[in-house]
């Protein structure tokens, strides 16, 4: 791994191809989750790898786990950059205090594919804020900074994402009960 990192820092072509073969699927999934379609995921993934190849020489990464986390961060940031360009976020006029959190009606264990599919089916803004808040663990202030939106917009987008997910879960549960 150290040799791979050394070669990557030297911009060795074979090392870059090896890295792409090893982590291409992983980063593609992340990009796909954020972008919501294959073409955009392809575009963001390729740009993410370009950034990784160009910037890895400036880092002091020596472990694979650190490399993986750093590459994920690069991919997420590239996805957010692309989404920001599309101006998918709109200011929410709703007051935060007025928002009533809708409780999830079912505690049943949901299938992994179903959950991922639910995430992917969310609108771009909801999906992005939900992914950053729930999956990546960012706070609203950080999300607002990353997406160049206000904190209230981030909270609003999250609330709506949760509402929509609840509806989706209820829908799936109703379908399961009907079967």
């Amino acid at each position: 791994m150290k040799k791979l990192l050394k070669d990557l820092k030297k911009k060795n072509h074979r090392a870059q191809h090896k890295l792409f073969q090893s982590y291409g699927d992983y980063l593609y999934r992340i990009c796909y989750r954020y972008m919501g379609n294959r073409d955009d995921a392809h575009e963001v993934l390729s740009q993410s790898f370009v950034n990784i190849f160009n910037k890895i020489g400036d880092t002091d990464i020596e472990e694979e786990i650190v490399l993986k986390a750093w590459m994920k961060k690069v991919a997420v940031n590239q996805s957010l950059m692309e989404l920001r360009k599309r101006k998918i976020f709109y200011a929410e006029l709703n007051v935060i205090e007025d928002i009533v959190e809708a409780p999830l009606t079912s505690d049943e264990n949901l299938l992994e594919e179903d959950l991922v599919q639910m995430i992917l089916e969310l609108p771009d803004g909801y999906r992005t804020v939900f992914s950053l808040y729930v999956i990546e663990g960012y706070k609203h202030e950080e999300i607002a900074e990353k997406l160049a939106i206000t904190v209230s917009t981030s909270k609003s987008q999250l609330r709506k994402a949760r509402l929509q997910l609840k509806q989706m879960i209820e829908k799936i549960e109703g379908y399961e009960e009907a079967r």
Partner: peptide, 20 residues
Amino acid sequence: QIKNAVDSWDQKTSDVGFDK
């Protein structure tokens, strides 16, 4: 649960069908 499902999905090595 959603987070774990997504993390697990991210870590899968199966081909997700993108043209490498």
